[in-house]
Design a protein around this nucleic acid. Structure first.
Lengths: 148, 148
DNA sequence: TTGAGATGATTGCATATGGAAATATGTCGG
DNA sequence: CCGACATATTTCCATATGCAATCATCTCAA
């Protein structure tokens, strides 16, 4: 008997790698955004005041604070995000979604939704997708600030 | 109503990122292997004659041929894999698992199984994990040479 | 109030990775 | 057989990323 946790893990890593590969190309071609940049904007969109500290973004993206710093640089130059200080804590440098950023993230999400639908288009019943989504969602049950 | 494909996709990417982060540390500490190196060895172990061409490995790992070339270099120096030519096609440079590689991959898989079990330890019923594994496996149904 | 330790952000450095180019070899039609 | 095109591998180059060090600021206890 094969360890089912192991089996799920291997399948999960494989599926994610394939999806990322598949998404990166089209998302970049359509919006000039990397997948992680789109996810970053989506986190901002969903946050209170549409802003988050860099450390908080790093946690939600499962990446390092330094990566967030470098990820936001080009987005700031493009005017998709801005920078805000916290009056109570001068260490914080919030990343805040701009009006232009709101437009871009809306479009990018539409593209991601289409790509997602395509990925499940064949051989999948709606209830199977819902079941999969629910189970995967449970893996993030302990996590704050989920996108969905 | 939220697009369930989109929801599943977002959860999938998030779950994979968290698992990779979690696994990388311990796998490296225990065996000195990166997650992708362990997966590479596992693919070889499962293949006919325990060998695969670099292009085939790239497909199965969802990475580029150049990455496979560089991934195998240190593994070869460690004696975990070797190189074999194909008598019929001089372009091919098979990556073949060595006896030392077999031992290492057995140990690494044991570690991965333990880490996987830990990841699902709480809040998960066996049948839920099996269901998740089955659904994720369907996402790879079109793929040749699956690990599981 | 003050000093020790914690936290947020950035930067330097080393490593990882993809894509294009270069090279070698194979295949196929004429 | 020959040339055009395809395929496998490697290398070059640019980019991406994590970690450790650094700096600034905050918190808390004495």
């Amino acid at each position: 008997m094969t360890n089912s946790s192991f089996s799920a893990t291997i399948h999960l890593l494989n599926a994610a790698a394939r999806l990322e590969e598949r998404f990166a190309g089209e998302l970049g071609a359509v919006h000039g955004l990397a997948l992680k940049e789109a996810l970053l904007l989506m986190h901002l969109e969903r946050a209170t005041k549409q802003r988050l500290s860099r450390v908080e973004l790093a946690k939600r993206l499962s990446t390092s604070p330094s990566t967030v710093t470098r990820l936001t640089l080009p987005l700031e130059k493009l005017g998709l995000v801005g920078r805000e200080a916290d009056p109570r804590d001068a260490r914080l440098a919030y990343v805040v979604l701009t009006e232009a950023g709101r437009r871009v993230v809306t479009d990018a999400r539409t593209t991601l939704q289409r790509l997602s639908s395509d990925a499940f288009a064949d051989r999948w019943a709606e209830e199977e997708i819902t079941s999969l989504s629910g189970l995967l969602g449970r893996m993030a049950a302990d996590q704050a600030g989920n996108l969905i």
